[in-house]
Simulated scan of single mutants.
Amino acid sequence: MHLPTRARLIRLPATLALLSLLPGLAAQPAAPVAQRPAARPAPVPPVVSPELHSDGRVTFRLRAPKATVVTVSGQFQKGPAAMVKDDTGLWSVTVGPIPSDLYEYSFNVDGVSMIDPGNPAIKPMRNPRTSILEIRGEPPLLHDFQNVPHGRVSLHWYASQALGRRRPLQVYTPPGYEANATTRYPTQYLFHGSGDNEATWVAHGHAHWILDNLVAQGRAQPMIVVMLDGHAVAPGASTDRNANVVAFERDLLQDVMPFVAANYRTREDATSRGIVGLSMGGGQSLTIGLKHPDRFAWVGGMSSSVGGAAELLGDGTALNRQLKLLWFACGKDDFLLKANQDLAATMTARKIRHEYVETEGNHSWPVWRRYLADFAPRVFQATK
């Protein structure tokens, strides 16, 4: 009798055996194996810059692993200081000791100037490029925050009809302005230099604290201070400085002064108005003040770009009668020194009553803060 061939038994792995029983599942792709997430890189510690030391020295730092040459420049030293890179790509240098004051500084990285990214204090400018180093005095300096009554700084936007666009301005009101609801105050117009803006006198000049401290010491009259943008010609529209002065004058007289009078309790006679500025703003204040002594009885300039101010002097008879004070100052190392000396000589020759002061220093904010501290106590005072 012929017997059938015996079937072969094949043992399959359990998984394959299951798939063979469920053909619908066999067509599905296998699920990917879960992967462990990649380890996160260790956090980079924040860069501390600038770091002030108790002996007056200051350490500056910048993380720039791919840079080849890094320096720091500031008003506290002559020339740039070379920084050194460690094995983590952190550049640093310690300079000083530096006298207490408020300074501008910047880094230069392979030929590119930049602010300090570790420092939130940046000088307000049209094109910001410098950081602020503040070294408080002990005892406090006049521009330092002190434990005295403080005024208020308000930011406004106004529609300039003269210029056809909206513009910003900042207004300081003295301590007690809100409480003394019926008191009217004199007004000081305070202008910045080329490249800066309406915020620079507060953020970097500390004009509000200078006024607070002077008033608390009984050295200055409580006053309203108006700070507006000195760049009246739109960027790129003109490089003619005279065109900017003309546009700025229109904006000031036609728009800013009426705005201030409508929103603040000002006294509206000429003896209750002052006008002063630095560098470009000094040229604006002298030019406008000398043209309009019927509006401004207190006129000043700091390291002024005097331009055509001498052409506005006349014989001085009217100016001597109308102006309470004509004051301007310049540092002995300032590049505008000769122009200011010539203006003072012209005033003397024409018998125009004025005060011209030469001081130590160059064309920089440490000088201009001192000038504001000299000028502010002189305005709105009784005169002989």
Score class of each variant (00 low, 15 high):
residue 75 Q to S: 13
residue 75 Q to K: 06
residue 75 Q to H: 07
residue 75 Q to Y: 07
residue 76 F to P: 01
residue 76 F to L: 05
residue 76 F to R: 00
residue 77 Q to L: 12
residue 77 Q to E: 07
residue 77 Q to R: 07
residue 77 Q to T: 12
residue 77 Q to D: 05
residue 77 Q to W: 08
residue 77 Q to N: 01
residue 77 Q to F: 04
residue 78 K to C: 00
residue 78 K to P: 00
residue 78 K to H: 09
residue 79 G to F: 06
residue 79 G to R: 11
residue 79 G to L: 08
residue 79 G to V: 06
residue 80 P to K: 06
residue 80 P to L: 09
residue 80 P to R: 07
residue 80 P to C: 09
residue 80 P to D: 03
residue 80 P to Q: 07
residue 80 P to E: 03
residue 81 A to S: 14
residue 81 A to T: 12
residue 81 A to W: 00
residue 81 A to N: 00
residue 81 A to I: 06
residue 82 A to C: 02
residue 82 A to W: 03
residue 82 A to F: 10
residue 82 A to N: 09
residue 82 A to I: 11
residue 82 A to H: 11
residue 82 A to G: 01
residue 82 A to Y: 01
residue 83 M to F: 05
residue 83 M to L: 15
residue 83 M to V: 11
residue 83 M to S: 07
residue 84 V to L: 06
residue 84 V to A: 13
residue 84 V to H: 13
residue 84 V to E: 13
residue 85 K to A: 12
residue 85 K to H: 08
residue 85 K to E: 06
residue 86 D to Y: 06
residue 86 D to F: 04
residue 86 D to P: 04
residue 86 D to N: 13
residue 87 D to N: 14
residue 87 D to M: 01
residue 87 D to C: 00
residue 87 D to E: 11
residue 87 D to K: 09
residue 87 D to G: 02
residue 88 T to Q: 11
residue 88 T to A: 11
residue 88 T to L: 05
residue 88 T to W: 00
residue 88 T to S: 13
residue 88 T to R: 07
residue 89 G to A: 02
residue 89 G to P: 00
residue 89 G to E: 03
residue 89 G to R: 02
residue 90 L to P: 06
residue 90 L to I: 11
residue 90 L to A: 01
residue 90 L to Y: 01
residue 90 L to S: 00
residue 90 L to Q: 02
residue 90 L to C: 00
residue 90 L to F: 07
residue 91 W to R: 02
residue 91 W to A: 05
residue 91 W to V: 04
residue 92 S to Q: 10
residue 92 S to Y: 00
residue 92 S to G: 05
residue 93 V to Y: 06
residue 93 V to T: 14
residue 93 V to M: 04
residue 93 V to N: 05
residue 93 V to S: 08
residue 94 T to M: 04
residue 94 T to N: 00
residue 94 T to V: 03
residue 95 V to G: 05
residue 95 V to S: 04
residue 95 V to E: 08
residue 96 G to N: 06
residue 96 G to A: 06
residue 96 G to C: 08
residue 96 G to W: 02
residue 97 P to C: 05
residue 97 P to G: 08
residue 97 P to D: 01
residue 97 P to E: 03
residue 97 P to S: 01
residue 97 P to H: 02
residue 97 P to A: 08
residue 97 P to V: 05
residue 98 I to P: 05
residue 98 I to W: 03
residue 98 I to Q: 02
residue 98 I to C: 02
residue 99 P to Y: 02
residue 99 P to F: 01
residue 99 P to D: 10
residue 99 P to S: 12
residue 99 P to W: 02
residue 100 S to Y: 02
residue 100 S to G: 09
residue 100 S to K: 10
residue 101 D to Q: 13
residue 101 D to Y: 04
residue 101 D to G: 13
residue 102 L to T: 13
residue 102 L to S: 08
residue 102 L to F: 12
residue 102 L to I: 14
residue 102 L to Y: 10
residue 103 Y to F: 14
residue 103 Y to A: 07
residue 104 E to A: 14
residue 104 E to R: 15
residue 104 E to N: 15
residue 104 E to V: 09
residue 104 E to Y: 15
residue 105 Y to G: 13
residue 105 Y to F: 14
residue 105 Y to P: 11
residue 105 Y to W: 13
residue 105 Y to K: 13
residue 106 S to K: 13
residue 106 S to W: 15
residue 106 S to M: 13
residue 107 F to Q: 09
residue 107 F to L: 11
residue 107 F to P: 12
residue 107 F to K: 11
residue 107 F to G: 08
residue 108 N to Q: 15
residue 108 N to C: 14
